[in-house]
Structure formats: C-alpha cells, structure tokens
C-alpha cells in the first residue's frame, strides 16, 4: 500500500511557489535601481547610509542586552521552579504565555501610561531609562520562546541530581547555576537567544512608539520614501533571520550529536 505521492508533491510545489516567489520578486526588484541593467546599487546605498549602520547597531545592542537580561531572569527562575517549586510551574508557564495573548501594541501602550513622565517611575522621561524600558519590553516579548527553550533544556537533564552532586562538592548556588546547569543547557539557551535576536532585530511597534531609532523604524522610513532600497532591506533582513535560524539548527544538531556520542 504505497501512499499516493502526487498530492503531496503538488502541495510541496505550491508551497515552494508561494514562499519563493516573494523572495525572488524582492531580490529582482532590489537589483533594478540602475536603469536598464541589474546592479547592487540599492544595497550600496543602504549599506552606506549612516542611519542604517546606527539603527542596526542600536537594535543589535538591544537584542544582546535583551538576551543577557532574559537569560539572567529566566534561567534561575526555571531552574528554581524545577528544583523547589514545581507547584508554581503552571502559573509561571501561564505568565510566560501571556505575551501571546496581549498584543505588543497594547503592551507598549501600557508602558506609556505606567511609566509616563508624571508616574511614580518616569522611565519614558529620559533616553537611557527609555532604552532600558524598551529592553525590558523585548524581554517580555521573548518570554514565551525563551522560557520554553530553557525549560525544555532543563527537562532533558537531571536538575536535582546535578544540583545535589554539586552541593555535595561544596559549590554555591551561583556556581551551580552558571558552571553546572548553564553549560548543560547551553544549546537550548543559545537557540532561545538566536530566536530572540531575530525577533528584536525586526521589531517595529515597541521601538517606534517609544520613539527610539530601531532598525525597523529605519526600514519603515525608507519604505515610505524610497523605491528600491526597501527591497534590498527586506533581503538583508531575510538573510539575518535565516542566519539566526541556521545558528539554531547548528547548535541544535551539536547537542544531538554530543548525545549520540554519549549513547
């Protein structure tokens, strides 16, 4: 009883058509800047634009900060929940899923009200504090992914035994967490980190409404004023996203192979 393969092939072919056409179209469009011939002019213009460089640098910096803060916040929490407070797991899980229910635009609207210049904590009043608020917002957006990745990683190792073994050797909590647990869930943490990077680098609403010069705001600006550069930007963004996902794959496979060798 061989399954009929014509249907599946048609499905894959149609899917490939739908997903590849926009990429091809965009790439083709991005090459049209010079009249009558294909060129990489649009890319040159974009890459040479100081606002491109500064907005990418700014977003990348925020992404890194988001990842560091996210790990510092979530890893100890997830570890502690597994070790000492498994009863709380459903509550924490629910909270980490809330960003999927609360749209980012609502979240940032809440920030603008909660932290406005006349509130108890006027974080929107000064630029550095706003950067911090934006970073925290990104941490919230990455919660569902980061928590899931780390929790999955912790599930795969025996947290309790590792902790007890380390304790019996005289290790402190911080030592256990960062020198025993973290290395064991490194690949899970990294895959969460790259996903977070991809999300932050393309995020528009938070950065735009908090009035910070993020990459997506720059893209939006270019999109509203230029013809060919947006297509070049879309290709660049796609490559960056692809790079992040590729790195997740690489690290996911590294973990798999390490395990296969052990087994």
């Amino acid at each position: 009883m061989k399954p009929n393969r014509i249907g599946p092939w048609i499905a894959i072919a149609l899917g490939a058509l739908y997903f590849l056409l926009p990429l091809i179209g965009t790439f083709e469009f991005s090459l049209r800047m010079r009249r009558g011939e294909y060129s990489f002019d649009a890319y040159q213009v974009v890459l040479a634009d100081p606002r491109f460089q500064s907005s990418v640098a700014y977003s990348a910096l925020l992404a890194v900060a988001t990842i560091v803060i996210g790990i510092l916040l979530i890893l100890p929490t997830a570890y502690w929940i597994r070790l000492k407070l498994p009863r709380l797991a459903p509550v924490v899980e629910f909270i980490t899923l809330m960003p999927l229910i609360i749209p980012p635009i609502v979240l940032v609207f809440g920030y603008l009200r909660f932290y406005n210049s006349s509130s108890f904590l006027p974080m929107t009043g000064n630029v550095r504090a706003t950067d911090l608020l934006l970073t925290f917002g990104y941490v919230v957006l990455s919660l569902p992914y980061m928590y899931r990745a780390i929790d999955t990683g912790l599930r795969a190792i025996d947290v309790r035994t590792l902790t007890e073994a380390a304790e019996s050797l005289g290790a402190s909590r911080a030592t256990i967490l960062f020198r025993v647990i973290l290395p064991n869930v490194r690949s899970a943490v990294l895959s969460g980190a790259f996903l977070t990077f991809a999300i932050v680098i393309g995020e528009f609403v938070l950065g735009s409404l908090l009035n910070r010069p993020v990459f997506a705001s720059y893209m939006q600006l270019v999109g509203a004023n230029r013809a060919y550069e947006p297509a070049a930007l879309a290709i660049i963004a796609f490559v960056v996203t692809w790079g992040c996902m590729g790195l997740i794959q690489v690290f996911g496979r590294a973990r798999y192979m390490a395990r296969a060798e052990k087994g």
């Binding site: 926009p22 991005s30 393309g202 297509a231 796609f238 996902m245």
Partner: peptide, 16 residues
Amino acid sequence: SNFAGIPLSFAFLATL
C-alpha cells in the same frame, strides 16, 4: 514564521 513585519510587506510590494 519569523520573517514578519516591515520587510515582509516590502517583499510583497516588490512581488505583487
């Protein structure tokens, strides 16, 4: 699934 937002709209404008 992560290629959303501004660049996605650019891609569709450049295609359709």
